[in-house]
């Protein structure tokens, strides 16, 4: 009998206001579909991409600089054309989106972990600890995020031995982008923590004797995650853009494993000699991806805001 009352998490989700709002918002449905398709295409690139652009055996220099298939001289094999080395643009975009999304997700998770931890500590401890963490955040906020990322990237390159550069550059990038983004999380989580810690359920836990660490983890953290998810979604778009910017500037991922930003940079050199497709298609992909993720974030923010319901 108890089973009939207990709702599974999935059933509760289907009955929630968020799911209802999602179903009635065409923007949310389309943008999440686009995001999902892109993520799946990137994830399964090795299986579904028409060519392997990094397999030197299959690349033929004779195929270089072919225009998209529907243009004159285009070939059906290469739907979106090829680049200067004869690599299929569609395939490089799929492989590039893999790198972009990996860096994006990894740096968002890194930011989240750092930001949430510091935000929880700051909000719960208060006093000087809070003042210190928040002043550090303020100082960091007075620099543009991209500058911080550039700085960390540069310093890391100085420290890491040269032969490891290519291997480690992607992790350096994740660290740089992640560190430049933690402040948003910390501030939001601190604000919510200040509200939650004065609620009576937290005081009840304190009266029981539960230690601060457990209270933060078990009671406060689940209750402050709503706004964090909103920031994380919007931050994902920012992280992807930041990665693309750094790669475009040549300080991101190495050209041997190109991301969308690297592809745009490589193509940029050919833009004015007529081979526009090498840079335009990765650019469009980036714009669509970031736009979709951003719209999703905007929708989520509105859906979780009780005042707008």
């Amino acid at each position: 009998m108890e089973k009939t009352i207990e709702k599974t998490r999935f059933e509760r989700f289907l009955d929630s206001d968020v799911w209802h709002s999602f179903k009635s918002s065409p923007v949310a449905i389309i943008s999440s579909l686009v995001t999902l398709i892109m993520i799946l295409a990137a994830l399964f690139a090795p299986y579904i991409a028409p060519h392997d652009p990094f397999d030197l055996v299959s690349i033929d220099i004779m195929d270089s600089n072919l225009p998209p298939a529907w243009q004159e001289f285009g070939e059906a094999r290469f739907l979106l054309g090829t680049d200067d080395q004869g690599r299929d643009i569609l395939s490089t975009i799929m492989y590039g989106a893999r790198i972009s999304l990996f860096v994006g997700f990894a740096s968002v998770i890194f930011s989240m972990v750092v930001g949430i931890t510091l935000g929880l500590i700051s909000g719960y401890a208060g006093g000087r600890v809070d003042a210190f963490i928040m002043r550090v955040a303020d100082i960091q906020l007075s620099f543009p995020a991209i500058l911080i990322a550039l700085l960390i990237d540069g310093v890391a390159r100085g420290i890491v031995p040269k032969e490891l550069h290519e291997e480690l550059s992607i992790y350096v990038l994740i660290f740089a982008i992640g560190i430049s983004g933690w402040v948003q999380y910390a501030r939001t989580v601190r604000g919510s923590t200040l509200v939650e810690r004065n609620k009576e359920y937290v005081q009840a836990a304190r009266v029981i004797g539960i230690r601060p660490g457990t209270i933060l983890r078990r009671h406060i953290l689940p209750n402050v995650m709503g706004p964090v998810m909103v920031i994380a979604t919007i931050h994902l778009a920012i992280a992807i853009i930041t990665e693309a910017t750094l790669s475009f500037l040549g300080v991101g991922v190495p050209p041997t494993t190109p991301s969308l930003g690297t592809l745009i940079r490589i193509g940029n050199e050919y833009l004015f000699s007529g081979e526009w497709w090498i840079t335009i298609f990765p650019g469009i992909t980036l714009v669509i991806l970031v736009l979709a993720v951003n719209l999703l974030g905007d929708w989520l923010r509105d859906a979780l805001n009780p005042k707008l319901r």
Partner: peptide
């Protein structure tokens, strides 16, 4: 603490 427990005012915020 085990010997001493508390009931709060606001039933809407006193439960997680």
């Amino acid at each position: 603490r085990r010997q001493m427990q508390m009931i709060f005012q606001d039933p809407f915020s006193s439960l997680n």
